[in-house]
Design a protein around this nucleic acid. Structure first.
Lengths: 220, 220
DNA sequence: ACCTGAACACCGTTCAAGT
DNA sequence: ACCTGAACACCGTTCAAGT
């Protein structure tokens, strides 16, 4: 992860002694993501300090803080791999959901920043496109396709948030919540809990979806 | 919704002419929620203006902006009704999930503010307590109880976020996403889409949970 | 073309001074 | 006990001045 810009040798017939540009959009995004991963925050001055520059310099490469966050959303969601055809649709969808969630899980502190502003990046739409194709091929009716995309997106987003929350949200001094406290004591903790919850919910959702599809395609 | 403090008549033998306090915690929270519902933002100065007071005055009643947001989370989640026993557990859980989601749906612009800070309010724990009891009585093993609470919480939170998003997130000029664009055109829009997605996902989740429970309790 | 310090409008919060 | 203006430290962003 080169947070500092790459210094290149001068181009063959280029103007000599011309200092290479200090900043680039890619370098700014690298530094911003690293900063968010480490601190959970993104301020322009902290970002500039990490880049060895000043806050105002950044604006020559990107329009502002919201654009940086949106570009990071785009970058993260484009990591979601394509569907490879020819597999049972539920296992393929399960694989996509896991990849979608893992992409955000790797940068969980980015999530509150991303969900605080309106989605304009294209990355998520690419993932949605694949999910729509998969569901359509599986036999879901056209009018339901976007609904299922919403269901999947909502669940995955919620799980990503879950992973970003500090552990001691559950480990509280219980006041009149004995059943909850006992459940906390009997459960996995931390990332293991969040992972297991995702697996369980994902499986339940897929079973429910298959049942729905079967009911729709059977002669009523 | 009385955003302005109630003016009471002087107490029997109390000190006369003592002006009634201008602010109260309850009045501050009422005004803050109304402000968030209307603008989607919460600044101390805007809040003070709505209360006919000054920003610094607010700090005599509540510790600061995070405390206001947390108190609102508490207030909203305490609206979730209790479970009434004696019903089939899936329909009862479905009713709770709907109530949980509706509580946030009524104030969807609060959600990004609430999810930007760590949960400390007690309200959610009360709702979790009821869900744990319900699932335990239904027959789920102790080690799974908190996992299912997580699943439900994640899905409901994601759906609440979905409802807060502007409509034109889906109505984009499609670039190489023909299947998605067709799905958008064939689907419900706006709150109707979000509602239908919640219903569909909720039903699928409950079907999947029932199947899981049956598999666990049957002799393998 | 790119960088920079200074300035701007705006935050949340603190505090001494009032009643 | 409660309220207030002024001040503080900190934001994101703009802009004229530099190279």
């Amino acid at each position: 992860m080169p947070a500092t810009p790459v210094l290149m040798t001068a181009k063959p017939a280029g103007p000599r002694k011309r200092r290479r540009r200090l900043l680039s959009e890619e370098g700014i995004l690298d530094a911003a993501l690293a900063l968010i991963d480490e601190t959970g925050e993104l301020t322009m001055s902290a970002l500039a300090a990490r880049l060895g520059s000043t806050a105002s310099s950044i604006y020559h490469h990107i329009s502002g803080r919201p654009a940086i966050i949106e570009a990071l959303r785009d970058r993260i969601t484009r990591e979601i791999p394509h569907v490879h055809e020819g597999e049972e649709w539920t296992s393929e969808l399960g694989r996509m959901m896991r990849a979608y969630r893992d992409a955000f899980a790797r940068h969980s502190r980015l999530i509150p920043l991303v969900t605080a502003q309106t989605l304009t990046a294209e990355g998520p739409a690419i993932a949605y496109e694949h999910i729509v194709r998969l569901l359509s091929a599986a036999g879901f009716p056209d009018r339901e396709l976007l609904l299922w995309v919403s269901v999947i997106d909502n669940f995955v987003l919620g799980c990503a948030f879950d992973l970003a929350a500090p552990e001691d949200v559950w480990r509280r001094e219980g006041k009149d919540t004995p059943a909850l406290d006992a459940a906390v004591a009997a459960s996995l903790t931390g990332a293991e809990r969040a992972d297991a919850a995702f697996d369980l919910g994902c499986e339940a959702l897929l079973v429910g979806m298959r049942a729905r599809l079967a009911a729709e395609n059977s002669p009523q």
